[in-house]
Amino acid sequence: MRKALFSFGLLLGLWQLASSLGIINELRFASPLAILRGIIEIEEIGLPPDYYLHTHIYYSMKLVASGFGLALISAIPLGVLIGASSKVRAFLRPVLEFLRPIPPLAWIPIAMLWFGIGFPSACFIIFLGAFFPILLDTAHGVENVPKGLVDSAKILGAKPKELWLKVYLPASLPSIVTGLRLGMGIAWMTLVAAEFTGVQDGYGLGYMIMTARDLQRLDLICAGMAVIGIIGILLERLLQLISHFLLRGQE
């Protein structure tokens, strides 16, 4: 943690120095101080005025949470099914192998056709981004639960329900959690593009960056990027803490 702060601090210092000395053209890329001022401006005045930063963040978080949540509740059960049954696996694998490499962003036109402009479209794009990593890692985890653990649970008298809840689930948890972390990363990355499909309320970090572009405010574009980066790190840290708690003894 201290090392991370140090490297970040050093980088910001050098960057600011280069900007102040004119080595980095401020019209090409904003300096750290300009970004900080930009962030404060968006929070105090709004972008566009009266559309404050925390509300943008709130709308984006809601969007990511919805898309990610949908992916979670659909991908985990389906992944368990694929991991547990070789028949289901053989049947679904070709379809999934075909769908997986299609980038979520390629779905934007279809999303707009199906769901129109606004929240549902963006939600669908984010859902797609998070769905596959969660699905594949869950399936992988369930498929690879050590047979010996299952056997010894059976010998100790475990019935099917107990096997699922007390062996398969905890044993595949590390893999599921990896999928969730990957899925969350991708969901957050698809956010901006998803919001390019348009938002109806005028809120959202991606939409905010578009507004800044329309105003030709480079500092505010960079401020938006910085906010997305910072929240991304915080989300990852949060998931790390949760997974650390869930995977006691298994790391």
């Binding site: 653990l149 056997d151 905890p170 044993a171 948890l173 003894g249």
Partner: peptide, 10 residues
């Protein structure tokens, strides 16, 4: 058994 198969999460 030789592979003790203790549950690592317990």
């Amino acid at each position: 058994s030789q592979e003790l198969n203790l549950f690592p999460w317990r």
